[in-house]
Design a protein around this nucleic acid. Structure first.
Lengths: 185, 185
DNA sequence: TACATCATGTAAGGCGTTACATGATTCA
DNA sequence: TGAATCATGTAACGCCTTACATGATGTA
């Protein structure tokens, strides 16, 4: 999997500029695939020269002009090829898990505040996801039809919600373990 | 967070060679921080020249000789400094989530087999974790005391178990969504 | 006038992946 | 004899992060 594919999906959902894509990668898409604006501008250039996307200069009033990108035929083909190619589950990276195991060789109690900070971050994200769910999926679609784009976006959001809930529960478990070590049971 | 810190934790738990570390990164530590043997050898060299680890040549019978690494004083200090430095939650990367959203622009039904493959991979891992839990934490420690290293390792393993369970449940949710789109409810 | 936001980039360096390479020992 | 496992590396290339850079417009 590459950043290209995430950009293609985002541009198919809605065309936009590099700047707008960068903003989307701070929310929405960015919750399961991150990228900085530097990466995005570089990759967009390559995608343009490969004919995956098309650019259109858009003059704006009260704002700097922008380049609006949209997916070209070759980009659609590339996405389709990637979608049908099997991929392995991504490797997980949890620095906090390394810290928890490392704390046994330092001061376990000192880790409590950090675990609490992470817990807060995950609670904030959960709140944000739940608000987004109510806003975007709270009412049935106006036309009543089953919209694949909408249903699949919702399924991904439910994944984010499940992930945050799991993390909060696990961090509580870690906090309880640290407390037990502190008091000696 | 860097690979160095994960290596320090692993070597504190038990000294070993680069090869042995690479094997541990395929299991245990590798479930929340991955690394290839090429990376490990390169980083070990740097850690040695920085005085973070010490090397000892170990002659073996019936096997090639190996270099056994253990953590030096400076390595312990480096780990301690990192443990006490606040870190942000790692960014998540789920290619399957990108595919799920991308499937709306291709053939959603074609994704079913891939989701099932991922589900199988997560089920296998869960089975493996649960077996490890019974093996390593099934009985109370022989001396009955509260061992920080053991308790924290167990807490991290419980995190892995919770993660796999959450993923399996979410993949079932995605499969149900894809089926609904296929039959048109 | 100063700060925030919109908008787009370059450059350096480190991290990670893929491919290539070597050689010993054990077991079928 | 051949395959698997143990053991240790080098090299090339690409991805990602961090830092630096510029300039327009809107708002307090």
């Amino acid at each position: 999997m590459a950043l290209e594919h995430a950009i293609l999906v985002s541009l198919l959902e809605k065309p936009g500029s590099g700047y707008e894509l960068a903003r989307r990668f701070e929310r929405s898409i960015g919750y399961f695939w991150t990228a900085s604006h530097q990466q995005i501008y570089r990759v967009l250039k390559r995608m343009e020269s490969d004919g995956w996307v098309e650019v259109r200069d858009v003059a704006q009033y009260g704002r700097p002009d922008k380049k609006e990108y949209s997916v070209a035929g070759r980009g659609r083909d590339a996405l389709s090829a990637w979608l049908n190619e099997p991929t392995e589950p991504e490797s997980v990276r949890h620095d906090l898990a390394v810290k928890v195991r490392g704390a046994a060789f330092d001061d376990p109690t000192a880790l409590i505040s950090q675990v609490e900070r992470h817990r807060q971050a995950h609670t904030d994200r959960l709140t944000h996801y739940l608000a987004g769910e109510t806003r975007d999926f709270g009412d049935p679609p106006p036309d009543g039809r089953l919209d694949a784009e909408r249903e699949l976006q919702h399924a991904v959001l439910r994944g984010g919600i499940a992930y945050e809930r799991m993390m909060i529960a696990w961090l509580d478990d870690v906090l309880a373990t640290l407390a037990r070590l502190d008091t000696g049971r």
